[in-house]
């Protein structure tokens, strides 16, 4: 369990993260949602020691992460930030191998190679393993980076907007892989995500941030509620249960003008027409 207590960060006068406290449950997928500028990425960067915090503390199983040796920490938590394009001549396999660095310090042993092979297979990168990273599509590259994180073999995996720039198919693919990692390998995954429907369908817990503070946090059923989300995003959001998932419908166009009465009326008309036919 990771416990975050009152972490804060200001840039100049502006408080980007304002005394955020949260806890992350083991063996679950926790999504961080919230409008742009809510401080999601800043929180995740501070929790994973990439960014210095102004105050507060982060405890992983009771150990303060800022006093832990960096290398020891690299075997317990991994963080994948939004991937910026690397100008490196590096193949998929080489990139994935970097995940073993905390253990091997660059000298790979047989066991490391076995783990790397496994991750490449797991992420279905076998055919791509000798291709250079800059020749890949966005989805393939994202899979390679996630494979590197899998190889790092940490209990906690943080992902900052892993679905950025991915189409629906690849987004679903990535989310299914994350679910598999939780189910089969018992990992704990924390993701920053923009699409609330992906958060609603694939995560166990959701933490919503707004203006640098935690607006609400709980299981997905507790958070995906009309009044809660409308307050966070300041727009009209309707929630429908479809195939057992709570789906948010938030297209603030004409669809937003359709009231529940309208919908019922429409359903009745359809039913009548079917009867008549």
């Amino acid at each position: 369990m990771i416990k975050v207590r009152d972490i804060a960060k200001s840039y100049g006068e502006k408080k980007v993260v304002d005394d955020v406290s949260l806890s992350i449950e083991k063996g679950k997928i926790t999504s961080l949602i919230g409008p742009n500028g809510a401080g999601k990425s800043t929180v995740i960067s501070m929790v994973t020691r990439l960014l210095d915090k102004d105050s507060g503390e982060v405890l992983i199983e009771g150990d303060n992460i800022f006093t832990q040796p960096n290398n020891a920490l690299a075997k317990r938590i991994s963080i994948l930030k939004q991937t910026n394009h690397l100008e490196l001549k590096i193949t998929v396999r080489e990139l994935v191998s970097f995940g073993r660095y905390p253990y091997s310090k660059g000298r790979l042993k047989d066991e490391d190679h076995r783990i790397i092979d496994e991750a490449i297979e797991y992420m279905e990168l076998g055919e791509l393993e000798d291709r250079y990273i800059d020749e890949l599509s966005g989805g393939q590259r994202q899979r390679a980076y996630i494979a590197m994180t899998i190889v790092q073999d940490t209990e906690y995996i943080f992902l900052d907007e892993p679905l950025n720039n991915l189409d629906m198919k690849h987004s679903v693919q990535i989310m299914q892989i994350l679910r598999r990692l939780v189910r089969e390998k018992g990992k704990t995954i924390i993701i920053v995500i923009h699409d609330i429907n992906f958060a609603s369908c694939y995560s166990d817990n959701i933490i919503a941030l707004k203006n640098g503070r935690v607006a609400v946090s709980g299981t997905k059923h507790e958070v995906i509620k009309k009044n809660i989300l409308e307050e966070i995003y300041e727009m009209e959001i309707n929630i429908q249960c479809i195939f057992g998932h709570n789906i948010c419908i938030y297209f603030d166009d004409q669809a937003g003008d359709v009231t529940e009465d309208d919908a019922q009326e429409y359903a009745q008309t359809v039913a009548h027409e079917q009867l008549r036919a």
Binding site: N71, F98, Y101, P102, R107, Q152
Partner: peptide, 19 residues
């Protein structure tokens, strides 16, 4: 070897345990 890791950029290098 840590130079190789550093060429991935600060975030990746920190993640992999390089100071």
């Amino acid at each position: 070897n840590s130079l190789d890791v550093m060429s991935l950029g600060r975030d990746h290098a920190m993640n992999l345990g390089v100071d």
